[in-house]
Amino acid sequence: MQGIEVLFMGNNMLRLWGGLWVTLRLSLISIGLSLFIGLFVGAFMLVKNPIVKAICRVYIEIVRIMPQLVWLFIIFFGITKLTGIDLDGETAAVIMLTIWGASEVGDLVRAAFSSIPSHQFESGLSLGLSRVQLYVYIIFPQAVRGLVPDVINLSTRMIKTTALVSLIGVTEVLKVGKQIIDANRFEYPNAALWVYAAIFLMYFIICFPLSLLSRKLTKKRGE
């Protein structure tokens, strides 16, 4: 039972929360960038030009079929090798998460707009709304309503995926946990259990409310 003491020794708890903050910061930055870039990806996928559409499709599929870990290594080690630019781990992490996130957001944006029935456009137009008014009052609000729960879901996946970046030396919450476990390996052999339980709880505290919120918004949309 004494493994639990490890959590409260020194500033271990503080260090874990600090690690969680790194996780959250990287996720937040990446989600922000993904949203920005993903809106353009989605918009490009909705244009009529088949070449533009195909390029976006290929991008999304390639990102989807390769494990994120492979992307992370390609960016972190590959770019450093190829260009000599010394990327720090956090930057590489944000690049990987953004490449992935933007492709997901792009596909969500495409889906959100193309799921709006053509009658919504036509009823708006037949009331005399201009194109701009049509989008501002009718199309965008419905698309956003569809997008918000999906983007929240994506955020929770992004927070979880951020755990990968401990593998390129970024000290996020999982890495901090490992350091604590390693430092106490001999005195407290079962510390790992407690540390991971604490990390589990931390992820839960962050992700569960998001997941609830997303579910609630989805339900509201389907009413």
């Binding site: 029935p117 009658h119 919504q120 036509e122 009823s123 708006g124 037949s126 009052y137 009718i138 609000p141 419905q142 309503r145």
Partner: peptide, 11 residues
């Protein structure tokens, strides 16, 4: 103009 499908703005 009124169409066959229910085309009120759902939001």
């Amino acid at each position: 103009m009124v169409f066959q499908s229910y085309d009120l703005f759902p939001h």
